[in-house]
Design a protein around this nucleic acid. Sequence first.
DNA 1: ACTATTTTTTATCGTTTGATAAAATATTTT
DNA 2: AAAATATTTTATCAAACGATAAAAAATAGT
Lengths: 204, 204
Amino acid sequence: MQKKRSRIQIINQQKLLDAATKVFASYGFRGATIDQIADMAGMSKPNLLYYFKTKKEIYLAVLEQTLNKWLQSLQDWMVTGTPEETIINYINKKFEFSRDHPAGSRVFANEIMEGAPILKNLLGEDLKRLVGENTRVIKGWVTAGQIRPIEPIHLMFMIWAVTQHYADFSAQIETLTGKTLDDEDFYKQAKKTAIQIILGGILK
Amino acid sequence: MQKKRSRIQIINQQKLLDAATKVFASYGFRGATIDQIADMAGMSKPNLLYYFKTKKEIYLAVLEQTLNKWLQSLQDWMVTGTPEETIINYINKKFEFSRDHPAGSRVFANEIMEGAPILKNLLGEDLKRLVGENTRVIKGWVTAGQIRPIEPIHLMFMIWAVTQHYADFSAQIETLTGKTLDDEDFYKQAKKTAIQIILGGILK
DNA sequence: ACTATTTTTTATCGTTTGATAAAATATTTT
DNA sequence: AAAATATTTTATCAAACGATAAAAAATAGT
């Protein structure tokens, strides 16, 4: 039976999770140190370990929180609209996530580049199922002649790639353009270009 | 005056660079350890440090080597052909790099996510210049009415995003599809889809 | 074959890192 | 206000890490 978390506990745990997300986003699990995380949260190391017993525990909590936000942002991709509406909606959601949770996006990227040892289990079959459903929808569009013949899985990879790119490589993008997704105009233009190309590439 | 490198030196340095590229690709600069690198190269740690005095030195050597391969693979993007030919050629080159140097691609990705502290200086203005030239070419296509109106920089980001995605997220791609770019059919299909969509999205 | 040089191994050092124990302080409950 | 509980700080540890010194072994030059 779990005791209910106190007010102070909730505040500090969230403060730590936010700090941890940023540190893990920059340096990955192995490269991040709990000293860094504690510092960024304005806390001592043993105090951090009072809330999360191990480095792995706080990393897991970060992954879980990010994953929830991510899945939540994708819930209604399955809406039954026209291909055009659906794709636009999907790209919108993904761009939103990249803008609102760039650190979370990079945590995923790091985890995957380390071989996704944790995320693989955490996602389990959920992502496979989700991808399976989506590919089936796209396949349906193709056979119904609503879009040009296309390999669904690669279309999905393409959408993921573009939207994540703006979050994961924001450092590079900023040196090249001086802008980030926080810039309203830049955000709109990036999204518009992605939608224009992808829709133009699959619609008849 | 530098003494010429011995046969053994050349072999071992390359062996270390190859191992280091893989380790840095997985864990980034901070997360990688020289023990891991030495192990993977079948060498003792002090022996590694005989060839590269510090961790930073071997990291720099890895970045430099990868950067050279990368720039080399992009040298002739400026060929004056039709937009269609040029884009296809460019995407081809990028896909080739992702297939032949996936670890190198991930080293870049890690470096950029750490804020690109080294790469920023190493690239200096070179990348900016390269990007500037390319955007000018694309802009030319637009004003000449050869392709649909498009924001050049975002088109470039899109091409980078897609091609790099297959290298950087190969772990995820493999769990979802069971395939990697080493699979000839998968490689062709990924490339074909990318070209189809991007060309379809920009050509009139 | 002998010497000089290069390469490898063994031993070790100071720091950093993840983690624990226990004392001190703050907060909540009664 | 006193007692009970929760939180924070101080002190410390063992293991891992980057790095060095010096001896041993291997290779190259004469």
